[in-house]
Design a protein around this nucleic acid. Structure first.
Length: 292
DNA sequence: CCCCAGGTCCCGC
DNA sequence: GCGGGACATGGG
C-alpha cells in the first residue's frame, strides 16, 4: 500500500457514532461543523474519521503506508452478523437492542489507556470520566497537534504525585491510578502477558492492580483485549437485567452472574454493550418493559 | 438538604 | 466468603 494521509474503508454495517459514544472510549471529539466527523489521538498519532453510509474515511497528519493498526482498533474485519447470529434467538430485549444499536462495534483499544480510563470511571458519570481523562492528557501528555496531546504513558503517570493527579479532579481514584502505573512501570504486572491468558486467569491477574475490581476488570478485558466472555456489571446493566429478565424480584449477585454466563454465551460482551447502549440512549427502562 | 454516578476498598461477622 | 459504609467530585 502506498503511503497516504487519507484512506477510505468500505464498511457496510458500521455505526461510527454509536461505537464512539457508547462509553468504551473517552477521548473522541465530534468536529464542529462536520457531519459524523470525529477526532482522537491513537498510539500517539492524530486521527480524523468521517463516516458516510457505506464507508469510513480516515485522515492522519502524515502519510502512512499501513493502516492495519486502525483496522484493528475499529475492528473493521469483524463480521457483525456472526455476533448477532450467536445472540440467544428467543430474547426479545436483545433483539430490540440489536435493532437500535445496529452497527455498533466493540473497539480494540490500548490496554494502558483503557485501564487508566476505567480506573477513573468508578462511581462517575461518563461525561465526568471524559473530563478527567481530558485533564490527565492536557497536563501529562505529549503535544501531538494543536489542541491534542498523546495519552500519557504509565511511566509518565508513575512519576506524578498523588496531588498532581487529584488536580485532574479524579478524587480518591488518584491513589489507584498512581499505584497501578507504578506496578506496571516496575514490571510487577505485564499488560502484554494478559493476551495469552484464558479469560478467568486474565481477570484475576488484572485485579491485582489497585482500583480494579470485577467490573473495571471486565471493561478492560472487553474494550482493550477483546475477551468475548467479559460482561461488565455496572449500575445500568443491573437495572436493565432486573427489569427485563427478573421483573418479579431482583436476584442475588451470584444468581445474576450465573444467568449472565449461561444466557449471553458466547458473545457476552457484545450483548452487554448492546443492552447498555440501548437502555442508555433509548432512555427509560420502564417504557421498554411496558412495550413487551 | 437529598440522591446518584459504567465501583472499589476495607472492615467486621 | 458476605454485607455494609467510606470515599471525591459534580450534577440533578
Amino acid at each position: 500500500m502506498a503511503a497516504a494521509a487519507t484512506v477510505t474503508f468500505e464498511v457496510p454495517d458500521y455505526d461510527l457514532a454509536a461505537t464512539l459514544t457508547s462509553g468504551q472510549a473517552f477521548r473522541w471529539r465530534e468536529v464542529d461543523g462536520h457531519e459524523n466527523t470525529w477526532e482522537n489521538v491513537l498510539t500517539g498519532r492524530w486521527v480524523r474519521l468521517q463516516s458516510n453510509s457505506q464507508t469510513i474515511t480516515a485522515r492522519v497528519a502524515r502519510p502512512i503506508g499501513n493502516w492495519q493498526w486502525l483496522r484493528d482498533y475499529l475492528q473493521l474485519d469483524l463480521d457483525l452478523q456472526t455476533i448477532y447470529d450467536g445472540f440467544p434467538a428467543d430474547d426479545p430485549h436483545l433483539a430490540a437492542a440489536r435493532g437500535t444499536c445496529h452497527g455498533l462495534r466493540l473497539l480494540k483499544q490500548d490496554p494502558w489507556e483503557t485501564l487508566a480510563g476505567f480506573i477513573c470511571s468508578s462511581n462517575k458519570q461518563i461525561v465526568q470520566i471524559e473530563q478527567i481523562i481530558g485533564e490527565v492528557c492536557d497536563r501529562f501528555g505529549e503535544p501531538v497537534r494543536d489542541n491534542w496531546k498523546s495519552f500519557p504513558t504509565a511511566d509518565r503517570i508513575a512519576t506524578c504525585t498523588e496531588a498532581e493527579l487529584r488536580a485532574c479532579r479524579m478524587g480518591y481514584r488518584a491513589k489507584y491510578l498512581l499505584g497501578s502505573a507504578q506496578m506496571i512501570t516496575r514490571g510487577e504486572l505485564n499488560l502484554e502477558s494478559l493476551r495469552a491468558m484464558p479469560y478467568d486467569e486474565a481477570c484475576t491477574e488484572i485485579q491485582r492492580l489497585p482500583g480494579i475490581g470485577p467490573k473495571v476488570a471486565d471493561c478492560i478485558l472487553l474494550f482493550a483485549y477483546g475477551f468475548p466472555e467479559a460482561f461488565p456489571v455496572d449500575t445500568w446493566i443491573i437495572k436493565a437485567l432486573h427489569q427485563l429478565y427478573f421483573p418479579r424480584r431482583a436476584p442475588k449477585p451470584k444468581r445474576l452472574q450465573a444467568f449472565i454466563k449461561k444466557h449471553f454465551a458466547p458473545h457476552h460482551g457484545y450483548a452487554q454493550q448492546y443492552l447498555f447502549h440501548h437502555v442508555r440512549t433509548q432512555g427509560g427502562l420502564l417504557e421498554e418493559t411496558s412495550e413487551e
